[in-house]
């Protein structure tokens, strides 16, 4: 059974989000790659003119997503792309794996402001770090988490 949940912290998603053609792919197979992925993410944020604070939020979110891959799916990848919806510049991070999938997605991303919501995957926290959060999980097939941070 496939489950898909989208959480948007910044009002309705504008239709015209265009992704940059250039995409950075970071394969995730060990905890070494977690560091590489978040460093690439920070670099991209700085290149796009994000503040140090926002770049740190993005790097932290990538770190959490990459760790989930290592812990639960063993291998997967992180994709980083610049985006533009006509009025704002953004960064889209996609964490993709072919792992076991998540049984109860709403539960996994629950947890308002407490330390560890849901399954302790840190997904609730990642949701708070980014503006748009989308997760699709298929039991036995894998999980894809896509998060967007708009430049302030």
């Amino acid at each position: 059974m496939s489950q898909r949940v989208t959480v948007n912290n910044t009002g309705p998603m504008t239709d015209g989000v265009r992704l940059d053609r250039a995409q950075i792919t970071v394969p995730i197979t060990s905890d070494l790659d977690i560091v590489a992925a978040r460093q690439r993410g920070r670099l991209l944020a700085v290149e796009l003119g994000y503040t140090a604070t926002q770049a740190t939020l993005i790097a932290t979110a990538i770190s959490e997503l990459a760790r989930n891959i290592v812990l639960y799916a063993t291998r997967g990848e992180i994709l980083l792309t610049g985006a533009n919806d006509g009025a704002r510049v953004g960064i889209v991070v996609t964490a993709r794996d072919q792992g076991p999938g998540i049984k109860d997605v709403p539960y996994a991303i629950a947890g308002g402001h407490s330390t560890s919501g849901g399954l302790g995957l840190g997904l609730a926290g990642v949701r708070r770090l980014m503006d748009v959060f989308e997760i699709t999980s298929l039991l036995g097939q894998g999980t894809t988490v896509t998060v967007t941070s708009w430049k302030r």
């Binding site: 796009l48 003119g49 533009n84 006509g86 009025a87 704002r88 510049v89 430049k151």
Partner: peptide
């Protein structure tokens, strides 16, 4: 602020 402006 490069990149923040509306692009047409």
């Amino acid at each position: 602020m490069p990149g923040s402006e509306t692009t047409v």
